[in-house]
Simulated assay, not measured.
Amino acid sequence: MDLSHIKMVVSDMDGTLLNSNHEVSQRFFEIFKELQKRNITFVAASGRQYHSMVDKLDSIKDEIIVIAENGALVKQQENVLLTTPIHKSEVNRILETLVPLENVHPVLCCQNNAFVGSDSDAFITMLKEYYSEFRIVEDRANVDEEVLKIAIYHFESSEKYIYPAVKHLENELKVKVSGANWVDVSDMNAHKGYALQKVMEQHNIAPHEVMVFGDYNNDLEMLELSEYSFAMANAHPNVLKAAKFKTLSNNEFGVERVLEKLL
């Protein structure tokens, strides 16, 4: 495997760069310094909120590109490079679709904030891991900010309890099972692949010059853009099938091991 042409490294966060305790390793930050010396750009790509992502990567946040909200928002430092919001009418349609479902928790993800209901203290406690900035509102339908994504949570299984109810929206919207407990619904172009394609175009990066790591279905489109796509050992079967290469799990420094070979 010839990695000498790599100019950009792109990594998902949860289940990929983050371990099971939602931590970035000190080992990665040391590797990042070496990537910088070689003028290799690092891109963090996640379904997480921008603020949550930069909290995890605080010491390097001004030196990386951030693809947040599954590609609906791209920022570099404080510069917004891309936003792909959901039309207001579609936001209302998605919320109406969720009304009959039990024990599901929608989050309206906006550029600077997220909006949730007050129906579950346990959900609010869990949410703090993924959202640094959020507000509790009585009626999400009254939120007047531009919505980039609706993230929907179920404590047991997103594939079993959420996805079947929103699958019919796939003709007009991007519907992604983005984690064991999450389904994300966004504009058809709001996905990591579209966002990464724009970033690659801006930096004149070819498929053989970018390395991509992922573990879940919301990573599939960006994995397709790279000749060096890596699935984590803990990845969803769809990702293991789609990626060209496989690395160790997120708890075994899977990303770091490959980057050490790159260096």
Score class of each variant (00 low, 15 high):
S59N: 10
S59C: 10
I60M: 07
I60E: 03
D62A: 14
E63K: 04
I64A: 06
I64S: 02
I64H: 02
I64T: 03
I65L: 06
I65G: 00
V66A: 04
V66L: 09
I67W: 03
I67G: 01
A68M: 06
A68V: 05
A68N: 00
A68W: 00
E69A: 11
E69V: 07
N70D: 06
N70G: 03
G71S: 04
G71K: 04
A72I: 03
A72D: 04
L73Q: 07
V74K: 02
V74E: 01
K75W: 01
K75E: 05
K75L: 04
K75N: 02
K75Q: 07
Q76Y: 04
Q77S: 13
Q77W: 09
Q77N: 15
E78D: 15
E78K: 15
E78I: 04
E78T: 12
E78Y: 07
N79A: 15
N79M: 15
V80I: 12
V80K: 06
L81Y: 00
L82C: 06
L82A: 07
L82D: 06
T83N: 12
T83M: 14
T84Q: 15
T84R: 15
P85H: 11
P85G: 08
P85S: 12
P85K: 12
P85F: 06
I86N: 00
K88A: 11
K88S: 11
K88C: 14
K88L: 08
K88Q: 12
S89K: 15
S89W: 09
S89H: 14
S89F: 14
S89E: 14
S89I: 13
V91Q: 05
V91F: 05
V91D: 06
V91R: 07
N92D: 09
N92R: 15
